[in-house]
Design a binder for these strands. Structure first.
Lengths: 109, 109
DNA sequence: GCTTTATATCGCAATATTACGATGTTTCTA
DNA sequence: TAGAAACATCGTAATATTGCGATATAAAGC
């Protein structure tokens, strides 16, 4: 086991779960926040700002890139990362719809 | 290792990561959607509706409960689960603010 | 071409997650 | 009070994640 049964769920459920999973780590949230603040992309600054090893940061960036939440382009010696607008919009739409489904506390538990 | 370095991050970052992690599984998204649709709580119906074993569903419910995203009350023999309004509102606020930080594609990568 | 700088990848150890059968626990009913 | 129904918990196997040191790779400048 230890393997999620993706066949059982809808594509939307799997997609949203994948996106959430990619963000579900404090380091990756911190990375995204840094990108959002600087608007313009950042790179190895992260290693200094967060207290994690270069290999670890690189790995987190890779996961965000795999989920297509961020994208990177070579900028000389370093690499410039920024938000992938397409995925971000998708996320806003999917998550927004999901969260909005809750209609207040119409008595229950 | 295999242990997240929570000391390094802010409480907000850790909290948001924990909430996202609790939702970052297709089964748990499916469970939440069912609760949102039925508004009124559900229980063992999930075992039939999703194709997972009772023990597995119970475990997923426990994780959602630990994250305080849902809450359950004893309803005779079965248990009634529903959204925890407080956490849901917190989630809407935190996630909303996070997602809204992105200001379009002001040229970068 | 060699060196420096900036990232990526590999390999590993520690720990976490996912799924499930088996077994406990609690509550209602006969 | 014994039995059934509905969940929860335990134990376990398979796999995934986290973090890092060491090493590889790529671009720029000399």
């Amino acid at each position: 086991m230890g393997l999620t049964k993706t066949e059982i769920f809808t594509d939307e459920q799997n997609q949203l779960a994948t996106l959430l999973k990619a963000m579900a780590h404090p380091a990756r949230i911190a990375i995204l926040q840094r990108i959002l603040i600087s608007n313009t992309c950042i790179c190895g600054d992260l290693v200094e700002e967060l207290g994690l090893a270069q290999a670890t940061i690189s790995q987190h960036l890779k996961e965000l890139k795999n989920a297509e939440i961020i994208q990177g382009t070579i900028e000389g010696v370093s690499i410039c990362y920024c938000i992938n607008p397409k995925t971000w919009k998708l996320l806003e739409k999917q998550l927004g719809a999901f969260l909005a489904e809750y209609k207040g506390e119409t008595s229950c538990c």
